[in-house]
Design a binder for these strands. Structure first.
Lengths: 343, 343
DNA sequence: GGTGGCAACTTAATCGATTTACTTATCAGT
DNA sequence: ACTGATAAGTAAATCGATTAAGTTGCCACC
């Protein structure tokens, strides 16, 4: 009668009249018992409906979890709506899935790694988490960590050279030293707000992707001998149509009207192009617009978007592979300028 | 000297000369010890670098995890590249994140829930998982389960009426009894293959979303008195531009050329429209094309896509809320026909 | 002064496993 | 027949916590 609703190693062992250890060994170390005994035990477990050792207990004992946390730069919501981030995630998960490892999504807004640190084998961090405490914790967390597109002084990371790429695309967009440049920046600020940004100098030291890209733009602007007025940089809090449109409209209706728009993502650039068209401007004659990312929609748009293409999925695969190898190395991945008709 | 590298409840207790239980209580049950003692302990922990009870051990003991598994219909890769699925996920995560609960992604291709079942508080299943074993396991897994857009006989679920919606959109698209209809189906088959599907009858009993939608189409086709030839249904294995284009090209170049294309997703419908335009066909004069989902890009396309809109993000929020409430109920969510110029 | 009640801790069982060290039994070899 | 190896299995410590039950000291109250 005393059949427990759900079996444990112990109750199974009692039922079969063998020891704890023997049942455990039947599942984990076949060489520790006779073949006959093992098969007998496994068959009995199957019949009774015991599906093997409880993973939580197993993990506690062994210290391994088969779970990797993907630390996102921002909320999970934001992440899944960004096409570049999703394709990165796609790359990561394809590799992990093949290795039977599960993916835990972790928001870059959380202020504490603690809620998951005891459940995972380590962390893959995609870009600098918005919450600074998180960054500090990641620096010293006693687990394996791979960072992507930013650096915390640990040795395993995957990066695209954001600064160089931004420099290149900006150099492409700039033609004359009297060009009027505006920058539509993505998440330059920690505050979740759409606004113009006047103070540039503090960004020159920042390590977020946005800061790296901004440095590339500035470098190109200098090199091209162009002047960037200090009211010509916008902060867009997330890569969404809505915010980007507002910022683009604002930028394009400011005087003197900019004729070069450097956009930190393709989604922003596309929104800007739509606004420009709505305002009756001609691209690239009245305004040249360039993006960053290389998403599909940009290549279908008329005029075709000029942008920096990076293979995010490949980046994801690389990050996951690097994680699994436990090696400490820094991998740089390639980018290509994708020249369209927009700038 | 004997400072362990990482602290445990026990080692902290020893260090402070109090019992195990007291330290535990300091973190979990303030009423069990004096205020002074408690503050003293917490301060000491902070100084020593003990961040609180190990969550894995805590979970083992308590049987709660603060982790919910999101069971996807297919691989995790697939999920993040599908805009509808992502916005569902967005909805789910927004609610969970607010409640401090972490999200674990679980592939619908896995053949065993076991790798995660001992780590999670329960499951939210988005659509019928591709792997049938998984479905069987979900039916009887001893954890809380909420299903979305399919049913496994458990009482908590969120659904849109796929069959009714498909019926409605198909009725809208069909005009004359001599219309030549083709169906571009999404994941009608378990096999990951792009092909024409000849045998329809077995689908009439299927419970996957694709099967529900197919039934709606068939019902409308009957009602409209139209004949559907049995070589006019395609199976597209995933909602991607590439596969959809191939299928659309094949459908549109078959004779007699279909003049109505019922597409099971907007991504497919958009690809079909692009192909039709490439072939010099006029929409909707030569061919009427309707989709399903209501993604943004469809509304921007020229001609605007006629489709079924469902608020996936809301669906996600609803599913998560239902999960957290632990209530057993079936929630139906609304859909609207979104009439554009495409069909 | 004895009793009851309460606050503040401690003891020890428990969650569900893994694993080292130990006990037997069996058998080959001399 | 005795030794030593090997195979097969068991006992008990352990992972890092929670918590019911028990202990102790202190104070109030009749």
């Amino acid at each position: 009668m005393s059949k427990p609703k759900s079996w444990t190693l112990k109750s199974i062992a009692n039922e079969l009249g063998v020891s704890n250890a023997t049942v455990s060994n039947a599942f984990n170390r076949p060489d520790q018992l006779s073949k006959a005994r093992r098969e007998e035990i496994l068959a009995a477990c199957k019949k009774l409906g015991y599906f093997g050792p409880n993973k939580a207990a197993q993990s506690l004992r062994r210290g391994t979890f088969n779970i990797v946390a993907l630390v996102l730069p921002d909320s999970v919501e934001y992440m899944v709506s960004d096409p570049v981030a999703s394709s990165f995630m796609r790359g990561v998960s394809s590799v992990l899935e093949k290795n039977g490892i599960n993916l835990l999504l972790f928001s870059g807004n959380s202020d504490n790694l603690n809620s998951v640190v005891d459940f995972v084998d380590g962390f893959i961090c995609y870009g600098r988490p918005r919450n600074k405490q998180l960054v500090e914790q990641l620096k010293k967390v006693p687990k394996h960590v791979v960072t992507v597109d930013f650096d915390i002084g640990r040795e395993a990371s995957v990066n695209v050279n954001n600064q160089q790429a931004s420099f290149d695309i900006a150099m492409h967009a700039l033609e004359n030293s009297d060009d009027r440049v505006a920058i539509l920046g993505l998440r330059l600020l920690n505050d979740n707000v759409l606004c113009r940004v006047y103070e540039h100098h503090e960004f020159e030291a920042g390590q977020s992707i946005a800061h790296q890209r901004l440095r590339g733009y500035h470098q190109a602007i200098n090199e091209a001998g162009v002047t960037l007025s200090d009211d010509r940089t916008w902060n867009i809090p997330e890569s969404s149509e809505r915010f980007a449109s507002i910022a683009a409209k604002e930028a394009l209706s400011s005087t003197p009207r900019p004729n070069v728009l450097l956009c930190m993502s393709d989604l922003i650039a596309l929104a800007a192009m739509r606004e420009a068209i709505k305002m009756g401007l001609s691209i690239p004659n009245d305004v040249r617009i360039v993006g960053f990312d290389g998403i599909d929609e940009g290549q279908r748009f008329v005029p075709k978007l000029t942008t920096v293409h990076q293979n995010s999925e490949e980046k994801g695969r690389l990050a996951a592979t690097l994680f699994l190898s436990k090696e400490q190395q820094v991998a740089q991945i390639d980018y290509q300028l994708q020249i369209g008709q927009s700038g």
